[in-house]
Every structure is written in structure tokens, then in C-alpha cells.
Amino acid sequence: MSESSTSLFRRLRGPVMGLAAAGTALVLAAPTAATAATAQARAAAPDPVSVLKYTAKERKEAVAYWTTARMKAVGKSVDLGPTGPKAKPYKGTPLKTVGRLFFVNASGADTWCTATAVKSANRSTVMTAAHCVRRGSSPGNTNMLMVFVPGYSKGKKPHGTFAVRTAATPRTWVNDSTNDMAALVVDTDTKGRKLTNVVGGQAISFTRAVGGTVSALGYSATRPQRGEELLRCVGKSKKDDGAQSIPCDLTGGSSGGPWLADFDATTGKGGVLVSVNATLDSLTPTKMYGEVLSTTAKKVYDRAQNA
């Protein structure tokens, strides 16, 4: 399987690893020494968040690279079969916050994922999947020339193009391919406006219990859309294999797309981001998996929103 198809979301879900062995720490004596040892251990612990930074030159090159023609061409280069039956074109009020995330992957191929502008302190934060930023368990293999185009539809960029300047992922993804989520920080647009000042931002939750109706959205590489239109699955989420899942047959290109709870498709209003499209159950997908956003995800998001 090529890296191009992997980044387009043809990865298969494997067994969930990562059960932590928990124990009870007993302080027997010398509390001062114990405190010092604890501080030393914390200082030695690796940063739980890994951050990629793109230079001003690289960001300028990214915006110049991703012309409208190139964006349309990358979709024509991939055909992952017919759309549906679960995934259907999104017909509600146009969503300004959701868009295509274009980049050149670690193998040098043009490709894309899906991403979402969210509410944040810096008004410039975008949520997506970690595998849209870099290969798991392979620290040196990172994506480049990355731009976010909110509201993308059939070659139209109604809200402009935003270069990605910082990409934060869990270190567990970098080292062990677990916790497949990421938070990006984007530049201002050509008029100097911050992202969520232009398109707004979805609310995000790191404490919401799994369950209830969720809309999963993404720019799937299935035909006839081939990434040019936003598609949507609707289903009830449930805990599944250490993560959560919903019935959905979105595939390549939908990676990183939002799971929105409390979403009104008619008005396009509401919608709390509770996960992102991460993995499929098979080559002929029947369900989509997403991480349960909690402590690790919050640390990644905070690193981005405070950048």
C-alpha cells in the first residue's frame, strides 16, 4: 500500500495496544527526597506533545504551490470506488469551518485530508488526524507544503487559503502510532485576518461521554465527488476496541474530518467536535473509528491554541 493511499485514509484498524500498568506509590520516608526525585523524574519525562514548525519561506511556498488547478488535479488522480450508501453529499447550509487540508506527503505525493476550524485562544487552530501530519512510528517522515482551505467546494475557495505554520501531535503517535489526532495552527489570510474571525469555529469537548448521534464529515476520494464535495455520515457513536466508532463508509480523503454532536445540518449551526475520522474497519468500510478525546488530546489542543 502506498503512502499516498495511506494518507488518503486507506489505513486499516489493527488491535488496540497501550494498556497502562497502574500502581500505587507509597512514600515511606524522607518526603523532601521523594519530592526531589519526583521533580527529577518529571523533568526527564518526554514532552507528551510533538510539534512541527514550518518556516515563513515554507509557508509562502505552500500557498504558491497549491493553485486551484493543482487542488482539482489531485482529486482526479484517485478513485476509491462509488460513494455511499451510508455517506451522502452534505446538503445543509454551507459549513465555513470544515475544509480540505492539502499537503505533499512524506513520499513526495500530492494528497489531502479534511480538517476543521475550532474555537481557540489564538483564533487560528484547526483539528485533524495525526496521520495527516506525519507517519506514525516514524519520527522523520513528516508532511510538507500544508494548507487549509475552509469551505472548499468544486474548486472554489470562498474563504481563502491558510498556510499551516505549526502542527502538534501526541508523542504516542510519533513513537507508537496511537492517539490519531492533531491540532494545527494556521497563518492569517492575505488580508491579515485570523481564521476563526473569518469562518467561525466549532466548539470542542474533551470530556463528553461516548454515545448519541454524530455527523462525520469529510472530502472522500469516492466517485463522483473525488474530493470536490463534502460528504456526511450520520450515526450513533459507541465505544469500540479502545476507541469509538460510528456506521460510516467515508474513505480516503475524509481523514481528520470532524465528528460533530448536537449538529443541525439544516442551519449548519451547533456542532461540538468530539472526535475526528481516524481509521476504517476494512477495505470495504462499514464503520469509522475515531479517538475518544481526553487528556492527551487536550494537551495537544492547548499546545496549538496557545502557540
Rank of each mutant, 00 (worst) to 15 (best):
P82M: 01
V133H: 08
R134H: 07
L80K: 05
V78G: 00
Y65K: 08
G108K: 10
V98I: 14
L80Q: 10
K86A: 11
R123K: 15
M144H: 14
M144F: 10
A64G: 00
R134Y: 08
P82Q: 08
T68Q: 15
R70I: 04
K72S: 13
G151R: 04
S153K: 14
F103V: 01
V63S: 05
G81E: 00
Y65I: 01
A115E: 11
V149Q: 03
K86M: 14
A129T: 07
G92N: 13
V118E: 06
P89K: 11
C132H: 03
N143D: 14
A130F: 08
K76D: 14
S124V: 07
A69N: 12
K88M: 13
Y152N: 03
C132L: 08
T97K: 11
K119Q: 15
N141W: 08
T93A: 15
T114F: 07
K60I: 09
G140H: 07
K88F: 10
A62F: 01
K96G: 05
G108A: 11
K119A: 14
V118G: 08
A109T: 12
G75F: 08
G81H: 01
Y65L: 09
D110Q: 11
T114A: 07
S137E: 14
D110L: 10
V147N: 00
G75Y: 07
W112C: 03
M144R: 14
T67P: 00
M127L: 15
T67K: 06
T111H: 04
F103E: 02
K119N: 14
P94I: 13
N141K: 13
C132N: 03
M71W: 02
G99Q: 04
M71N: 02
V133K: 06
T55M: 02
H131A: 04
